[in-house]
C-alpha cells in the first residue's frame, strides 16, 4: 500500500472514518462473497438430483433476507454518524484563525496570497507567489478560495483536504498543519489542456523558518 503522511489536524479523522467504513463493508463483502461461492460449490449440478422448489415469500425463509436487510440499516447509521461528524468538523464549522491566506486558481497555475509580516490580507506587505504556498506548522489558517476563469479544485492530499474553486465566488475553509515538510498541491478538477501540469507545492515550516521566509520575501519585493 502507498503511504501518505497525515499533515493536518483532521487527516487522522478522515483516515479513521475510512477505516471504519472499510471494516464494516469489508465484513459484509467477505460474508457475501463467501456465502456466494459456497452456494455455487454446494449446489453444483449432480446427476439425478432435482432442485428444490423454494419460494422466498414464506416467512421462515424470508428471514434470510429481512435480517440482513435490518443489519444493513444499522451499519448505515454507524457510517452516517461517522461521516457527518467528520464532515461537520472539516467543512461546516470554522475554528478561529491565526492567519488568513488567499488561494487563486487560474488556467493553469495556483497563485497564493500570503498576509506578510502584519498578518493581514490585502495590505501592502502581502506576499504573492505562484506555485508555492508557505505556512507555519501548528497554526490554524483560513483560506479564501477563488478562481479567475473555470472550475479548479484545491487539493492537498497530505491534509486530506479538497475544495472546488468557482469563478465569481470566494469560498472559505480552514486547515491546521501538524508537521513540517514539503508536499504536493493538486488541481483535482479538470480545467483544460494544462490541468495535468497545474501542480504546486506547500511548504510547512516551523516558526523560525517561516519568519525567515517572510523577511526574505518581503525584502525581495519592497523597493
Amino acid at each position: 500500500m502507498l503511504e501518505l503522511v497525515q499533515a493536518s489536524t483532521y487527516a487522522a479523522d478522515i483516515d479513521r472514518l475510512i477505516l471504519l467504513i472499510g471494516v464494516i463493508v469489508g465484513v459484509w463483502f467477505l460474508l457475501a462473497e463467501g456465502i456466494f461461492f459456497w452456494l455455487i460449490w454446494k449446489f453444483r449440478a449432480k446427476p439425478g438430483e432435482k432442485t428444490q422448489y423454494l419460494d422466498g415469500t414464506e416467512k421462515h425463509i424470508k428471514k434470510w433476507i429481512t435480517i440482513p436487510h435490518a443489519l444493513v440499516l444499522v451499519c448505515d447509521v454507524f457510517i452516517l454518524v461517522g461521516a457527518v461528524s467528520v464532515w461537520y468538523d472539516v467543512k461546516q464549522q470554522l475554528p478561529d484563525a491565526d492567519s488568513t491566506i488567499r488561494v487563486i486558481g487560474q488556467q493553469w497555475a495556483w497563485t497564493f496570497q500570503h498576509p506578510g509580516a502584519d498578518n493581514e490580507l490585502d495590505t501592502g506587505d502581502d506576499i504573492f507567489t505562484v506555485g508555492d504556498l508557505h505556512v507555519e506548522v501548528e497554526k490554524t489558517y483560513h483560506f479564501q478560495l477563488q478562481s479567475r476563469d473555470v472550475l479548479h479544485s484545491f487539493s492537498v492530499p497530505v491534509f486530506r483536504l479538497k475544495q472546488d474553486a468557482i469563478p465569481g465566488r470566494s469560498i472559505t475553509g480552514w486547515f491546521t498543519p501538524t508537521r513540517t515538510g514539503e508536499h504536493d498541491v493538486q488541481c483535482s478538477e479538470i480545467c483544460g489542456i494544462g490541468h495535468g501540469v497545474m501542480a504546486a507545492r506547500i511548504h510547512i515550516e516551523d516558526a523560525n523558518t517561516h519568519a525567515a521566509w517572510i523577511t526574505r520575501s518581503t525584502a525581495a519585493t519592497t523597493p
Partner: peptide, 25 residues
Amino acid sequence: LLISVPIAEMLFVMIATLYGGSITL
C-alpha cells in the same frame, strides 16, 4: 446510504436464488 438498502437486498435475493439449485457453469 439509504439507497444501499434496496440494492443490497436485491443482491441478497439473487445470491439466495442459488440455494437449493442445480448449478451448471
